[in-house]
């Protein structure tokens, strides 16, 4: 059952990736990204990482994507036509990415063929506990980082000529 869902989400991911990579319209690309992000949340849930699934949906799909959509909106104002995405050096990109994919799959993949995962319990409680005990410092620092990037983004995006 889990594998069936897993392969379903995989299909969604693949479709999203294809859309993202090959569409000419930027909105379609953004929607493709959205599909990928949502499907990933589903896979996280299947892997017993519920908190992360939710965070993924909220933060990525709801935050980052919206941010990107805003970006699309703000950078596409020159003409009334939606911007067309052009590609450059597609061959080279294909070669490099295919090489990377093959390298990983051929050289690194076989190491995990005989690995047997264990069934692990849900992680919400354990994750929260570890966030506030073991990783408190990192947590705090992450907060500071968020604050800083908030300010930075606000400053940079402002229309003042500074």
């Amino acid at each position: 059952m889990a594998t069936f869902f897993f392969y379903g989400w995989c299909g969604v991911i693949v479709a999203g990736l294809l859309t993202l990579a090959m569409s000419k319209k930027i909105i379609h690309a953004a929607l493709g990204l959205l599909a990928v992000l949502v499907a990933l949340a589903g896979i996280y849930a299947l892997l017993s990482a519920e908190l992360l699934a939710v965070i993924q949906l909220m933060v990525y799909a709801g935050g980052v994507l919206v941010l990107i959509l805003f970006g699309i909106m703000l950078t596409g104002r020159l003409s009334d036509q939606p911007m067309r995405i052009e590609s450059r050096h597609v061959g080279m990109g294909l070669v490099v990415s295919a090489a990377l994919f093959l390298t990983l799959v051929v050289f690194v993949g076989p190491a995990f063929l005989s690995v047997a995962p264990t069934d692990k319990p849900g992680s919400l409680r354990a994750l929260s506990l570890s966030l506030f005990s073991e990783y408190t410092l990192a947590f705090e620092l992450a907060g500071i980082l968020l604050l800083v990037s908030l300010i930075a983004g606000a400053v940079m995006a402002s229309s003042r000529q500074s």
């Binding site: 889990a2 897993f6 991911i13 990736l17 299947l46």
Partner: peptide, 28 residues
Amino acid sequence: MIATHHIFVLSALLLSVGLFVLLTKRNA
């Protein structure tokens, strides 16, 4: 059980396509 290997392949795919998009598209 979901095979770890398949997840790994999936992530490799994501990585490759991400790289492809990064190298190829002409939009920031």
